[in-house]
């Protein structure tokens, strides 16, 4: 049974080398502990409130892979999702997640890169000022969980993206698992909060909803710690394709969440008893989207 781990860390803001060492240590530990998939939060190599530091901590994915190779000589048979500031060959800066696989000879290779599509630029968020949005969304194969998709934080607040991931794959058999690295600052402490920040309660609802409606495993990796007065919500969690919680990390502080998944047993169980995701009408979706996007809403 696949062993899944979320490292809910609190990176040092703008300190790439320190954070790289932390990642190398945690990757080595995961490898020792026979973890199959290790997920870090959004921007785990850099911290969140970077502002003008974005270009200073950016690196190409090949450079990062080479650094990881040098820093992880003992890591074997592990897949990991790592958050970083990606500098494209054309010198655009993206809020990206790199999925890496270490083979049995401790050689890492890139499985997938997701560039955050929706950059929140309102309220306390200012990502659009510093990052270029991603333009594509693709699922990819993992050894651990089969076909997966990544949504970085705000991406998951746009209904279209989880649906696309759930459909993107051979014969429309899309992702069976959504990996959601996030950096969510805690806010909203009204009397009805009952110990959970109002901002996080929305996450709780939408993660369970995606798991249930798309019949996918949802792996949410939050972060702990504080930056410039913002306390991050933590609360990393794993939800089964039937919408049940399989484990949850602490709020606000660094934590580690280990979950051993009956996989693909849980996926089979959810999809054997429901045809909700299987009956998604992609032709209708395409037709109506084309009408809306191309011909205008009134046609």
């Amino acid at each position: 049974m696949p062993h899944l781990r979320i490292e809910q860390i609190a990176p040092k803001l703008g300190c790439l080398e320190d954070n790289l060492r932390l990642h190398a240590d945690l990757l080595a530990k995961a490898s020792e502990d026979d973890v199959d998939l290790l997920v870090f939060p959004e921007l785990s190599l850099t911290g969140y409130l970077l502002k003008d530091l974005v270009s200073e901590v950016a690196q190409g994915s090949e450079t990062l892979l080479n650094r990881l190779r040098a820093a992880t000589p003992s890591v074997r048979n592990l897949e990991a999702a790592i958050g970083f500031v990606e500098e494209s060959p054309g010198h655009r800066f993206h809020n990206s997640t790199l999925v890496v696989r270490w083979d049995e000879r401790a050689v890492p290779s890139v499985v997938h890169i997701h560039r955050k599509v929706y950059l929140p630029t309102y309220g306390l968020f200012d990502e659009g000022r510093y990052f270029t949005p991603g333009k594509t969304l693709r699922t990819f194969e993992t050894q651990c969980l089969g076909r997966c998709g990544i949504l970085i934080c705000e991406d998951a607040w746009h209904l279209s993206l989880p649906l696309l991931l759930a459909l993107d794959g051979p014969r429309l058999e899309g992702a069976g698992a959504l990996i959601i690295p996030s950096n969510s600052p805690a806010r909203g402490v009204g009397e009805a909060a009952q110990g959970i920040p109002e901002s996080y309660r929305i996450w709780d609802r939408l993660l369970a909803t995606y798991a249930t409606l798309l019949e996918v495993c949802v792996i949410y990796a939050g972060r702990g710690g504080v930056e410039d007065g913002l306390t991050f919500s933590g609360g990393s969690q794993v939800i089964s394709p039937t919408g049940e919680s399989l484990g949850k990390a602490k709020h606000f502080e660094s934590d580690r969440l280990d979950v051993t998944l009956d996989w693909p047993g849980l996926l089979r169980m959810a999809r054997a008893s429901s045809l909700v995701s299987a009956s998604e009408n992609v032709d209708l979706l395409k037709r109506e989207l084309e009408r809306i996007a191309i011909r205008g809403v009134d046609c």
Binding site: L13, L50, K51, V226
Partner: peptide, 10 residues
């Protein structure tokens, strides 16, 4: 347009 977080480097 010189914008750095207060917790720069921590």
């Amino acid at each position: 347009d010189f914008r750095y977080p207060r917790d720069w480097g921590y």
